[in-house]
């Protein structure tokens, strides 16, 4: 397993390099202008100067190599410096990947946005899983029961109704009409005592529920299908023939086997957390990574979009590996050597 993991990690390096190059080319070819959103009162000569100051005058390959250096050498050095607390080399003149939109290091922007994204999207993923698994298990065990029918209906609704609709609906009900929950997420809120903790819960409630419903809809279907697959297996009959209680049959024999594919799906979904939830973040003004990405795209902020998408690529490659390894650990029939 270790050899396998190392081999996969080594293979990931050229893959990621190719990905970064493709992202860079696509962004570069896209007909976009970072000064395009400036007011028209700014004359074209000034725009040209601004573009020059952003480094857009340089040829493509130079910009790509510069980005590679900044991302793979300078930024890691900065992080190490941060850990050690002592400067490494000439840290002041080391160029960082800098956003054109805010003229600040992209990595800092990402770090700044991580908490709200993890709170909202991460928590919703967790809540989604916690809702989905029991629903999936019960739906499968009581296939075609009322519970199953209602579960199927809710999943269908959760999956097919877009989050911008459910989000808006919740805002109209809970913020506008009832006035219970805030419609705008306060990223400056710090949890220090019970009342600020409650405030945090209140502002998390709506975005988390909207996303959790969406996540749960998908996962519960998946869980149900996997359970159904296993419930009709002979080994389940064997377990019953052994005289195991239904609880043991369901939770030990069936659930464990059914979880194998589901856990893989869950692991593959984790990078999405870091991708943020573009629409939900916009609706509740969470301003996490999703909103950062969309802003970067709107403003042709190539370094920002490049870095963000590349980090997503790394996460996707990494969690694919994790999913494979977890699969191997859960399913004794699979061994990588």
């Amino acid at each position: 397993m270790l050899n396998y993991t190392i081999r996969r990690l080594l293979f990931a390096i050229p893959t990621l390099l190719v990905i970064s190059f493709i992202i860079f080319i696509i962004l570069d070819l896209a007909p976009n202008d970072p000064t395009g959103n400036l007011p028209l009162t700014i004359p074209a000569e000034v725009r040209a100067q601004i573009r020059e100051s952003l480094g857009l005058g340089q040829p493509f390959h130079i910009r790509y190599i510069k980005w590679l250096e900044q991302f793979f050498i300078n930024e890691p050095l900065n992080i190490m410096e941060h850990w050690w607390g002592a400067p490494i080399g000439d840290s002041d003149s080391r160029l960082r990947v800098t956003s054109w939109m805010s003229r600040s290091p992209v990595v800092d922007l990402i770090v700044e946005r991580m908490p709200q994204t993890l709170w909202v999207v991460g928590l919703s993923y967790l809540v989604g899983i916690l809702i989905a698994l029991p629903i999936g298990v019960i739906s499968a065990y009581k296939q075609y029961s009322w519970f199953d029918q209602i579960g199927t209906f809710i999943s269908m609704v959760g999956f097919s109704v877009p989050t911008f609709f459910t989000g808006l609906l919740l805002i109209v009900v809970f913020s506008v009409n009832l006035g219970w929950l805030p419609s705008i997420y306060d990223t400056t809120l710090k949890v220090t005592d019970f009342s600020s903790f409650m405030a945090q819960l209140r502002q998390l409630a709506m975005p988390v529920m909207v996303l959790a419903l969406f996540n749960a809809a998908q996962l519960s279907r998946f869980m149900r299908a996997s359970m159904l697959d296993n419930l009709n297996q002979d080994y389940v009959r064997t377990a019953r023939a052994k005289g195991m209680s239904e609880k043991v049959v369901l939770l030990v024999h069936v659930l464990r086997n059914s979880l194998i594919p589901v856990v893989t799906v869950i692991a593959l979904g984790v990078p999405q957390i870091f991708g943020g939830a573009i629409i939900t973040e916009q609706i509740f003004k969470v301003n996490g990574l999703g909103q950062l990405l969309i802003l970067g795209i709107e403003n042709a902020d190539i370094p920002l979009v490049q870095t963000l998408t590349f980090i997503f690529a790394i996460l996707i490659v990494f969690f694919n590996l994790i999913a494979d390894v977890v699969y191997g650990m859960l399913d004794p029939r699979i061994r990588y050597d």
């Binding site: 007909p31 000064t35 395009g36 028209l40 709107e298 042709a300």
Partner: peptide
Amino acid sequence: SASVFFGGD
């Protein structure tokens, strides 16, 4: 798209 239309590409 505005960023193309108003962009100086």
